[in-house]
Each structure stands twice: as structure tokens, then as C-alpha cells.
Design a protein around this nucleic acid. Structure first.
Lengths: 127, 127
DNA sequence: TTCAATACATCAAACTCTTATGTATTATTT
DNA sequence: AAATAATACATAAGAGTTTGATGTATTGAA
């Protein structure tokens, strides 16, 4: 009789999600965090996501900064610079347009998940 | 007094999901469908997904065929050609490696969704 | 004083999807 | 009978995103 588990470790050790899955949800994550926190800066976003997901979603700066810039260019975010000593900090906030977009995106994700679950739960030859 | 609904129509009319969301789940969808149906051909996969999701997830052939070829190149799928009259039909099946990959992917997606929900459900300033 | 953490940013290469385009057979409509 | 739609494969240029590296600079900890 086995007294230790040798498989399914992946679900016990914190599994890091393949970047493929995170693709497509990055903007949703950023918009939702900003909706909840009024203003955040880039580095803070990466750390917050790391903490909230126990390291399972790791946003890289190379992906995050271009995304923030794109959201800003779309008029969804506004920015304000702050100095902490001599170090620059760039805070992002949702514009009114950004607020409705945030709701829209979270909504869409929720429905997408429902649709995906109906796809992935289907068992063969039930009838 | 309004007697008709003018907003939230998007959730009543079948919303088509942005391709951004579908990115990263295409392989999962294909692997799961093949796990449930033993063998399927490309066109059949596009139609099945269309039906099962009520047109909300639409796989284009330009995305599907390269993906099938990639999965095959990875040793996850095997193929067999059949002729329906003179028309070619290429059936895909899961290899043993593909079967475990399918479980892995569905599992990963499920956990990813849980993680995302904890991210997206968080409300600000609860304490 | 050296290393790690904080904080911004850019960029080439890689990857994936979109949107045609192409070929060919078969079924349906006009 | 001819035209159109559906079936069924496939590729490929361009677009969009992410990876992974690299860069600059400040601040805190060892």
C-alpha cells in the first residue's frame, strides 16, 4: 500500500500556468485590478498578481508595460507621475471609458468560462 | 416608465467571444473533443464547436489546421485518411501521449479559471 | 560594497491568429 | 442546366502579442 502520493503533484505544488492561457486575459486582469484599486503602478500590478495568485500567474514586465501603454493609447487609462525620492513611479487609473470596459471584460470572461465549461464537461456517448 | 430593455443586450443576443479570449484555449478544446470522440476531422471540429457553443466560439480553418499539424508534429495526434467518394477526409485521433496531454490541459484550464475567479471576484476595501 | 529589490522602458525573435486565397467535390437552389 | 452553397483540405502574408534579453537608475539589505 502506498503511503505517499507520487502523481498529481502538479496540483499540490503550485502549478504555474502556461503563458498560453494567460494570453487573452492580461487586459482583463489589469482593468479589473484598476477597477478595484483606483490607482496602481506597473511594478505594483506584477507583485499584486503574484501575491493574489500565489505565484501561479506571473506577469512579465515585457508584456505588462506595452499593454499598459496600449490601454492608455485607447483612452482607457490615465496616468500621473509621482516621485518616491528620486525614483519615478507612474500611476495608472481607469478613465470613465476604462471603467465600463473593465465591467465588459470581466463579464465577457465569465460568460466565456461558462461556455468553455459546457464544452469541456461534455462526456462522450452518454445516451 | 420603460417597457423595454435597452441595455445589457449583449448578454441576451449571443455574444461572440473576442478571439483574444480563445487564444490559449484552442489546443485544449481540440484535445478535449478528440478525447471524447475518438476520431474527428478538421471541418467536423469547427462545426461541432460552433454547435456546442451556439456560435459563440468560431474556430477558423486558418487557425485550426496549423494547430492540428502542430499537435501531430508533437506526437499528440495520429491521422488516417478516408475517402468519401472522391473527397478527402483526414481523421485525427489522440495518441497515448495525446490522451494524457488532454487531461493535463483540461485540468490546467479548470485551475486557471479558479485562480482567475479569485482575482476577478475580489472587491476593494472589504475590511 | 556588493547584491537584491524596486521601477521604468524597449526590442528582436518567436509565436499565433486573421483574413484572404486556392483547389476540388458534392448538394442544393434557381 | 447552371449557379451557388456547403463540404474539406491547405497555405501564406500581415497583424498582433509575448518571451526573454537588455538597459538605466535608485534604494535597501547583507
Amino acid at each position: 500500500m502506498k503511503t505517499y502520493v507520487s502523481s498529481y503533484q502538479k496540483t499540490e505544488i503550485e502549478m504555474i500556468f502556461s503563458s498560453e492561457l494567460i494570453k487573452g486575459t492580461l487586459k482583463t486582469i489589469v482593468l479589473k485590478l484598476l477597477a478595484d484599486n483606483k490607482k496602481m503602478y506597473g511594478y505594483e500590478i506584477t507583485q499584486t498578481v503574484k501575491e493574489l495568485t500565489k505565484d501561479r500567474i506571473q506577469l512579465t514586465e515585457g508584456a505588462l508595460y506595452p499593454t499598459l501603454h496600449a490601454l492608455e493609447a485607447d483612452g482607457l487609462l490615465t496616468t500621473e507621475i509621482e516621485y518616491i525620492g528620486k525614483r519615478v513611479r507612474k500611476y495608472y487609473s481607469l478613465s470613465p471609458k476604462g471603467k465600463s470596459k473593465a465591467k465588459e471584460r470581466v463579464n465577457e470572461f465569465t460568460e466565456f468560462v461558462e461556455t468553455m465549461q459546457s464544452l469541456l464537461d461534455i462526456k462522450p456517448r452518454l445516451a
